[in-house]
């Protein structure tokens, strides 16, 4: 058991190290851009998964938190604030929004939360489009010093932080509480686990990390419409990547996000926008027939080959 743990730890360190030295060997900008995008998606999907996968609350407004992080970080950073402070504000404000909307929405069962977050994201989407209709471009003095490397490392840091936070949250007592609330809220309440407090905490952490990812995006992107990060497409991408990889697991969203970005890139060369049709169908199939996502496929293959059925249960979400 301990040897296995050490091997896993070594593997994680190796992956992070490989990603860290990647820019030293790969000089092509488009590869670094693609890797940055993949890391951004890992962060988005993993942060969505904290609430959507582990706590079982389907947040259809993740773009609101991502967008808010982008908006604030961009304005503050371009306004002369140091980047770290702009990133911090861009991550904290979404948490406040999450707590305001979460407190009433979580008191209700069923679909309210999903619809409420979807509506919230659309309110922000439309408002931002009305208020800031012009494209936001980096001014000349920022462009003169623009380098891709720092952006890549920021994405890497955010992705590692997000996955790390998700991991430690899930391994902690809080994580157990979250899953108990997801499975059987009434029973969890009777054991003294507060459903509302756990869900709010998960929502807050999820919003913080989404806002941070948004901040990294604001630092990265040269020119975009301020509305763009609020587009529901960001939510859809995060949800689909999470489910396709395997919801309610640590590895699932990572696999899903990388798979999503790569396939999207491959398809984009041939047929623009076709990837949404393909992922939409794949997503429906996963929800209907394969609730464990790609991870479940993998463990099925493994148990079919070597009879190591043990890992299968761990990969299956029970939501």
């Amino acid at each position: 058991m301990r040897a296995k743990r050490l091997a896993a730890l070594a593997f994680v360190v190796l992956v992070i190290a490989a990603l860290a030295v990647l820019p030293l060997f790969v000089k092509k900008d488009n590869i670094i851009n693609l890797a940055s995008l993949a890391l951004l998606y890992v962060a988005l999907a993993s942060s969505w998964n904290i609430l959507g996968g582990y706590a079982g609350q389907t947040n259809l407004g993740h773009a609101a938190f991502f967008g808010l992080g982008t908006l604030l970080t961009r304005f503050l950073w371009l306004g002369g604030w140091p980047l770290w402070a702009a990133l911090l504000v861009g991550a904290v404000v979404p948490v406040i929004l999450a707590l305001i909307i979460g407190a009433p929405a979580f008191r209700l069962k069923g679909a309210y939360f999903a619809i409420g977050t979807l509506a919230l994201a659309q309110v922000l989407n439309v408002t931002v489009a009305n208020r800031w209709p012009m494209i936001t471009s980096l001014p000349a003095r920022y462009l003169a010093t623009y380098r891709l490397m720092p952006r890549y490392y920021l994405f890497l840091a955010v992705a590692v932080l997000t996955v790390g936070v998700a991991y430690f949250l899930v391994k902690s007592r809080l994580g157990l509480g979250l899953m108990a609330v997801r499975e059987e809220e009434d029973a969890a309440e009777s054991l003294g686990v507060s459903g509302l407090r756990h869900k709010l905490l998960a929502f807050g952490v999820s919003a913080f990390l989404a806002g941070l990812a948004g901040g990294a995006f604001a630092f990265y992107h040269v020119g975009y419409y301020p509305q763009f990060p609020f587009s529901p497409a960001w939510t859809f991408d995060a949800v689909m990547a999470t489910y396709i990889g395997g919801t309610g697991t640590i590895v699932g969203p990572i696999i899903g996000a990388v798979f999503y970005v790569i396939v999207k890139e491959l398809l984009a060369l041939k047929v623009v926008e076709a990837h949404l049709i393909i992922f939409g169908i794949l997503f429906i199939l996963v929800v209907l027939f394969l609730p464990g996502g790609l991870l479940e496929v993998w463990s099925k293959i493994r148990s079919a080959l070597g009879g190591r059925a043990k890992s299968r249960k761990a990969a299956l979400p029970a939501g």
Binding site: A114, V239, I277
Partner: peptide
Amino acid sequence: PEETKVKNTLLVGFGLGLVLQNVALR
């Protein structure tokens, strides 16, 4: 059960909407 029904139909509907929208777009 009802909770699962709401959630799963929500997800399927959401995937279906995305597919229909993009098919119409193409």
